[in-house]
Amino acid sequence: MERESGGRVSEPVYRLKELRKLAWAIAAGFAVSGLLILFTIGVITGSITSGLAIAIVTLGLIILTAAIFMDVLWEGWGVQLFSVITLVIVMLLILNIIFGRQVMP
C-alpha cells in the first residue's frame, strides 16, 4: 500500500496518519457546523450586525475549513506557504475594493 504521497514511511505509520486525518476531519465537520449554526442564531437575534463582525467570522471559518479539509495542516511547508500567499492576495483584492473608493469606510 505504498502510495507516492505517503512518502517513504512504513505501512502502520501511513495508516495511522490517514486515520488521524479522518478523525480530525469528522471532528472539524461538527465544529464548523456548530459555528455556522451559532452564527446564524447570532444574525437572527440581531447580535451580529456590523460588517466587521461578519468579516471576522467569515475569515475565521474559511481558514479553519481550508486548513483541515484542504489538507493544508497536514502537507509540508510548501503548501502552507502558498496557501498563506493566496490568503494575502485574496485579502489584498477585497481590501482594495473596500478601501479604494471615494469615501473610505
Binding site: I54, T58, T65
Partner: peptide
C-alpha cells in the same frame, strides 16, 4: 477531488456568510 470539494465547501461558507447576511 476531495480537495476540490473542500474548496467548494469553503466558498459556500463565504457565500453564506457574505451574501446571505451582509
Amino acid at each position: 477531488l476531495s480537495l476540490y470539494w473542500a474548496f467548494l465547501a469553503v466558498v459556500s461558507i463565504a457565500i453564506f456568510t457574505i451574501t446571505y447576511v451582509f
